[in-house]
Amino acid sequence: MKVVCVGGGPAGLYLAILLKRQNPSHDITVHERNPEGSTYGWGVTYWRALLDRLHTYDPESAQAIEESSVRWTQGVAHVRDQVTRQPGDAGHGIGRHRLLEILAERARGLGVRLEFEDEITPENLPEADLVVAADGIHSTLRTHHADRFGAEVTEGRNHYVWLGTTQVFDSFTFAFAETGHGWVWCYGYPYDDGHSTCVIECAPDTLTGLGLDAMDEAGRLTVLEKLFAGILDGRPLTGGASAAWPAFRTLTNRTWHHGNLVLLGDAAHTTHYSIGAGTTLALEDAMCLADALREHTALPQALAAYEHRRKAEIVSAQSAARLSAQWYENLPRYIGLPPHRMFALLGQRHSPLLPYVPPQLYYGLDKAAGRLEVLRRFKRWLGPRAARALHVRS
């Protein structure tokens, strides 16, 4: 089979790796419009469950990813001058540049052709048995067939900026800073021994009230460094091409394939960054598509199976992402709680029940459920059903 993959991000590279492992005779080319080694963003996060799956699908690249990652087992929240910590699941961070380097090296080693600075459009699309659109939320190939794919984009309310720092956090770090125009908050996590990612978010009125939307990059960084001086410990923030203040755009598509063209990763779907699942979902898309192509000899059946399975699998993540984004959009509802209680509810932000129960009452019920097995079982039973009901209504 001849495969053309448009987009050299994690999804496209990992799919190429998996298809070559399944059948070395496949003719696979990955086309990336940017130069090799250039990418947006700083570090990405993932959890142990993904690492286990990576080891199952391709142990060699999984080992390299694990060796290049940092790990944490707790979260810390800074609210005004108070600090609270909570244990959590083992989280991992890896630099996006390093992740792409590992996947590119592995793909080349298997015989995949990588063509950088090679922008593919509908007009110069090479002939192939399968064309994979892994070219992100602004996918050119998907847009060309917009009526077929039925893309819908929903813009969130808050604005964010993606930054880096040489401050190495020892855990997944949240910091909430109060200003005269509202709250500004930061999500920070390490991704190698010398760097961390900082995603900073605020409401629209806060953005304009502080003048952040009208400042140049140097001015914005100066303001943010002062606001988060307590967690940065004197180290600077670093901007770059990603130092803007967009509102997050959630993308869905009515269908994920048309003819021999299939969508992968952010070209097919996006989920709010606050659940840290974007890269995980993209890699899992690649796993699912590779499985479907192995299990079905006819391409139409394979693409239909891939779409059906992945759409069902990501419902819970999409629901969690919507609820997580809404939690931050309604931060004043929670920020006045004692920090340890606010942090506990931050960890419960994926619950479809939380927006409808007074925060103090929900905290008490959640603590009780943690002590009583019958309530814990009821909570586990009710949560997925409420999430599915929310998905159906939306």
Rank of each mutant, 00 (worst) to 15 (best):
V4W: 08
V4K: 07
A11I: 01
A11V: 06
L18W: 11
K20E: 12
R21C: 11
Q22W: 10
H26Y: 13
I28Q: 08
E32M: 02
N34S: 06
G37P: 10
T39S: 11
G43C: 09
T45F: 10
W47R: 14
R48A: 08
A49K: 11
R53G: 00
L54F: 07
D58C: 04
A62N: 09
S68P: 05
V70G: 07
V70S: 03
R71Q: 08
R71F: 10
Q74K: 03
H78Y: 15
V79Y: 14
V83A: 01
T84R: 05
G91K: 02
R96K: 13
L99W: 10
L103A: 05
L114I: 04
E119N: 07
I120L: 06
I120S: 03
E123H: 11
P126N: 11
V132G: 13
G136T: 07
I137H: 08
H138T: 00
H144F: 14
D147I: 00
D147P: 01
R148A: 12
F149H: 13
G150D: 12
G156N: 10
Y160P: 02
Q167P: 04
F174N: 12
A175E: 02
H181D: 09
G182E: 08
Y191D: 03
C198E: 10
I200Q: 09
P204H: 03
T206N: 09
G209E: 09
L212Q: 10
D213Q: 03
T222R: 15
V223N: 12
V223L: 13
L224S: 01
E225L: 04
K226F: 02
K226G: 02
R235V: 01
L237V: 02
L237P: 13
L237W: 13
G240K: 04
S242M: 14
A243W: 02
T255R: 15
H258V: 00
H258E: 15
H269M: 09
T270S: 13
S274Q: 14
I275H: 06
I275T: 07
A277C: 04
A277D: 05
A282H: 05
L283G: 09
D285N: 07
D285F: 00
A286Y: 14
M287G: 07
L289T: 00
A292G: 08
E295Q: 15
H296V: 00
A302R: 12
A302V: 01
A302H: 11
Y306T: 04
E307G: 10
R309G: 00
A312E: 15
I314M: 03
V315M: 14
V315F: 06
A317M: 10
A320P: 01
L323G: 04
L323P: 01
A325Y: 06
Q326L: 09
W327N: 01
W327F: 15
N330W: 13
N330G: 05
P332W: 09
P332A: 04
R341S: 04
R341N: 01
M342R: 00
G347K: 10
S351Y: 11
S351Q: 12
P352I: 02
P352G: 11
Q360E: 13
L365I: 01
D366K: 03
D366Y: 15
K367P: 01
L375F: 15
P384I: 00
R385K: 12
R385G: 05
A387G: 10
R388F: 04
A389N: 06
V392C: 11
R393P: 04
